Simulated assay, not measured.
Amino acid sequence: MVSEPAGFWSRFFAGLLDGILVGLPLYILSNILTGSTDDNWVTELLLFLYSLLLPVFWGGCTVGKRLCGIKIQKVADEGPPGIGTMLLRNLVASFVYGITLGIGWIVSLFMVVFREDKRAIHDFIAGTEVVQFK
């Protein structure tokens, strides 16, 4: 069964919801716990772990993705991503985006908008796709 690719707007709103529903509370909590708002590594670590681990344990979804009806899946077998897949998707892709000074991220944005399969660079690195689910 071929899944319908998730387009730009559903991915955008999923990220926005993750930021509001998870990122903002984590930011506030970590600022309370550390007593600082300056370069809070605790927030960054918690958000990294959230985006890395939740899709592994929740069928390819984050809170935002679940609310938008989309999920990450492996292209090869349409199964949920494992920890290795998510490490490739998040860590290696972030490195690629960093060394290209953000140009890779902009290219990915255009790929999601214009490619028929809606896959970005990080999807190709990890062998994943973001699809709609019922």
Rank of each mutant, 00 (worst) to 15 (best):
L21Q: 09
V22L: 12
V22P: 11
L24I: 15
L24F: 13
L24H: 05
L26A: 09
Y27R: 10
L29M: 05
L29T: 07
S30C: 04
S30F: 01
N31L: 00
N31Y: 01
T34D: 02
S36E: 07
S36P: 02
S36R: 10
D39F: 13
N40S: 05
W41T: 11
T43N: 05
L45R: 01
L46V: 02
L46N: 03
L46A: 14
Y50G: 06
S51A: 11
S51N: 12
S51C: 03
S51G: 13
S51Y: 11
L52K: 06
L52E: 11
L52C: 11
P55H: 06
G59N: 13
G60N: 04
G60S: 08
T62V: 03
V63T: 07
G64R: 05
R66I: 01
I70Q: 09
K71T: 08
I72K: 01
K74E: 11
K74N: 10
K74V: 04
V75A: 03
D77I: 07
D77R: 04
D77Q: 09
P81Q: 09
P81I: 12
G84Y: 12
G84V: 14
T85R: 02
L87F: 15
L87N: 09
L87I: 15
L88A: 15
R89H: 15
N90T: 10
N90V: 12
V92I: 15
A93G: 03
A93I: 00
A93T: 10
V96F: 06
V96K: 02
V96C: 01
G98A: 05
L101Y: 09
G104W: 01
W105F: 10
W105D: 00
S108Q: 09
F110I: 08
F110W: 11
F114C: 06
E116I: 00
D117M: 02
K118F: 03
R119Q: 15
R119I: 03
I121H: 02
I121A: 04
H122P: 05
H122Q: 10
A126V: 11
G127I: 12
E129A: 15
